[in-house]
Nucleic acid binder design. Structure first.
Lengths: 219, 219
DNA sequence: GAAATTATTTAAGTTTGTCTAAATAATAAT
DNA sequence: ATTATTATTTAGACAAACTTAAATAATTTC
């Protein structure tokens, strides 16, 4: 099936929002894609026509098996390009998202399989997210929680869910990146801020906002 | 200035057709872009508005200095991606054109400059065409003629102007590629076909059609 | 459970880049 | 120098992916 860039972006966003299996809401999708709910309704009809989603008026959207396959292809392309940009062109992990967002729409099986080979068939991308293989299979995302909900003391940073460059720049300044080990010193109830310490660095206090967007797993 | 993919393709095509300095014709551009003359007229008005071309009704199109700069950027991106595909992903030179056609529209100065560094700042692409540098400067294409007009006996293949994969496949089968040295054995007047010989290979006869699309320079 | 709020859809219109068909200009042919 | 031919432009329409404004459905609240 030949999809437009817009269609691919919808499919990818639905995949991202669907998570478990609950239906994705028109409004949520509009917000994710920075568009208007009315546009989402329009597109939903088209994607249903193409059998990529199931959609009934007022009932929200879920990917069909076909749609899921498509989504995984796009995710695969995105994450492989991110690897390329970081590993080969020395971009830092916070810069690559927007670029990969464009590169991912070059559709060529052969290109992607060669790119994957060239990169040594990586299985996780620079943000720590798993890369689907050519058949759409991938490691299940490791059990991770956001930093504000972590219950262990010693943690590793596994991903940063917010893709805004403001946050990423902040983390960079504090030399917190993928794989950084940190320790929770204190939890301040009144504003839910968290004091953390990275080895060889002074302790810093992080707002709830920031903590929600840093994904960690217990060390 | 922020151009759409379509606009970039027009600018690139005008650049390609302009060669020396004569104005590009509406029909020629329509043919090159596989679209209709009416569409070209429409787009010409828009590009004139943006000061990328000069255009007067019925007088044809020429790039403005601004337009030329844009064209060279697109050409640079295209040719660098071709290098990447051939050098790093082991594509053969006849496969890369279409892919580069898509990759070239990812606009990021930083991406392109890093890609160029990664490739060792190449100055010619896999088809033998020079790659503009970041300022749009490039080696002038070496003096080359099409094979049907060559007057020397011993020649080197420097480029293949037709980008159709049919021709490229044919050349591949005859193991004629960039840098291949060949010798003209005979010129048959009645159909302008040419008999050539590649070292260690049996002599072959090539139609005028094919000869027109093989660029060579004297050895 | 009726009223208020929020979410979703419909209707109508916009922009970009295309198209066809008809009109007009430029060029070539006799 | 007409006429015929070819090239170019205009006019009107269309598809994709948007938008805003209004209408309708679903959900919450009291």
């Amino acid at each position: 099936m030949n999809l437009s860039v817009a269609e691919e972006n919808y499919i990818k966003a639905i995949y991202k929002l669907q998570e478990g299996e609950q239906a994705v809401t028109t409004n949520a999708l509009a917000y994710e894609l920075e568009t208007k709910p009315a546009s989402v309704t329009d597109m939903a009809k088209k994607l249903k026509e193409k059998k990529l989603i199931s959609y009934e008026k007022y009932q929200g959207i879920t990917l069909s098996p076909e749609g899921r396959k498509t989504a995984l292809q796009v995710v695969r392309r995105h994450r492989l390009w991110e690897c390329f940009l970081v590993d080969k062109l020395s971009f830092s992990w916070e810069e690559v998202h927007e670029l990969a967002e464009e590169l991912e729409h070059v559709r060529s099986e052969k290109l992607i399989s060669r790119l994957s080979d060239f990169l040594g068939n990586p299985v996780i991308d620079p943000h720590g997210d798993p890369i689907p293989d050519a058949n759409g299979r991938m490691a299940k995302p490791r059990p991770q929680t956001s930093l504000d909900q972590a219950n262990a003391r010693r943690l590793v940073v596994t991903a940063v869910s917010d893709q805004s460059s403001a946050l990423l720049a902040f983390l960079n300044a504090k030399s917190i990146k993928l794989g950084t080990q940190l320790e929770i010193i204190a939890h301040y109830e009144f504003d839910n801020s968290i004091e953390i310490k990275v080895k060889h660095q002074p302790a810093i206090t992080i707002s709830e906002q920031v903590a929600k967007n840093i994904m960690v797993r217990p060390l």
